[in-house]
Design a protein around this nucleic acid. Sequence first.
DNA 1: GGTCTGACAGCGT
DNA 2: CACGCTGCCAGAC
Length: 106
Amino acid sequence: MQNKNNLSFTEKVHVLTAKIPRGKVATYETIARALGKPRSYRAVGTALGKNTNYKNVPCYRVVRSNGELGEYSRIGYSKKKQLIRDGIPIKNGKVVNLNDYLYRFR
DNA sequence: GGTCTGACAGCGT
DNA sequence: CACGCTGCCAGAC
């Protein structure tokens, strides 16, 4: 399903996720907001869930609004480890000072 | 086109 | 403070 922009909502989510720089993270709400729909965070989660392009889309950089890492079920691979590797401090399964590491889409 | 699902969020209990 | 129910939106049936 493609819209006028030639990109489905899901595709947009993937693209934005891929733009998150190393050392930064984004929340489902942030991404939804970047798409101009602050309340589609639900759909964002669904979109990432359907994503299988782990090579191109660093979905581990997408966390919950409260700083928790979220499910990331599919593989069961440590999202936490990846973030730490990117320089994001994690404590008790949550991002420390989320606001400082939160990436703002431009 | 109505209904269900989901890698969520917020508020109530 | 830990659950549970409800609301939200796009995609799949």
